[in-house]
Design a protein around this nucleic acid. Structure first.
Length: 298
DNA sequence: CGTTACCTGAAA
DNA sequence: TTTCAGGTAACG
């Protein structure tokens, strides 16, 4: 569910609320702990309780709670994970599996009633499918560096960097599979890949090494644009995604092709097609994203 | 590389 | 009843 824009929205919501607070307690549903973490509940508590959260960061689709002992709690929401800020007396979330109890006062968030403030709050973790993960790691940079390529929305992510990521080794795979590969660039998922390929007018199944230089340039720009737009619209809430306060985003109302199978393309009116590429449901306009013309064998 | 498994629904 | 789901790791 959550791709880079969704995770970044959550980060921006929660960062000012959690920064400077101390973790008072950690509670986890006993039936979930072995899926959520590689630590026992006791070891997870030992690592977290009493620590102060210094900041909340993001890399790709991971959230990083940076702790005052140099370790970090690295959270991945996978398909249905949610992390929302709630007053301690708020009723349980649907499919709530864990909570982190935070201290009432914080030097960074002086209270204004509502939201932040003097009352005790929880981070509530809910996860219908239980795919989400919490890892406590000593060196988050190293932990993520070996799993993730560069951030596609960084100013430093130049066209040259994009081209290198796309063309680096075994480029006969589909361009969609390449964009989904987190080690090439971090943060794209099924929604934003389909949207970027539509915006760049490239058919998702096109072999990566068959994308022209011109189309590649369009794709670089489109990738960054759709991610930025997703952040502006606070993420896409097709089903499970909510932000750090539990509210839906609006990006799902602005998609051009994702889950619009059979509906008219906004550009040309042709019905949107659905196929499977890279093992994922894939949406595209057969007219705006033409199949690459096969070169004539003479 | 593509496929399967992880888990629990919602929708067709 | 069957298929599909915004993600990834493991498998062949």
């Amino acid at each position: 569910m959550p791709e880079l824009p969704e995770v970044e929205t959550i980060r921006r919501d929660l960062a000012p609320l959690v920064a400077g607070r101390r973790i008072e307690a950690v509670e986890v549903d006993p039936g979930t702990i072995h899926l959520l973490s590689d630590l026992s509940l006791g070891d997870l508590r030992s690592a977290l309780v009493g620590r102060r959260i210094e900041s909340l960061g993001r890399r790709g689709k991971y959230l990083l709670f940076e702790l005052d002992d140099g370790q970090a709690l690295v959270v991945h929401l996978r398909m249905t994970g949610r992390l929302v800020w709630r007053a301690a007396d708020a009723p349980p979330e649907p499919y709530e599996r864990a909570r982190i109890v935070l201290d009432a006062s914080s030097p960074l968030s002086l209270d204004e009633g509502e939201g932040s403030g003097v009352r005790v709050h929880h981070l509530r973790w809910s996860d219908l499918r239980k795919f989400g993960t919490w890892r406590v790691v000593g060196d988050p940079e190293a932990y993520l560096a070996k799993r993730l390529g560069p951030e596609p929305i960084d100013a430093a992510f130049s066209f040259a960097a994009f081209r290198a990521a796309v063309q680096g080794r075994s480029a006969s795979m589909s361009i969609k599979a390449v964009l989904l590969d987190q080690r090439r660039m971090a943060g794209l998922g099924n929604i934003y890949v389909d949207e970027a390929l539509f915006a760049a007018r490239i058919r998702p199944a096109t072999p990566a090494n068959g994308v022209s230089a011109q189309a590649l340039k369009r794709l670089w720009e489109a990738t960054r644009r759709v991610l930025e737009q997703g952040i502006e619209n606070r993420g896409a809430s097709f089903k499970d995604y909510v932000d750090g306060q539990g509210n839906q985003g609006s990006q799902h109302m602005h998609v051009q092709v994702f889950r619009r199978t059979g509906k008219p393309c906004y550009a040309c009116g042709t019905p949107i097609s659905r196929t499977v590429v890279a093992g994922r449901g894939t949406h595209f306009c057969p007219r705006c994203q033409p199949a690459r013309r096969r070169r004539h064998e003479d």
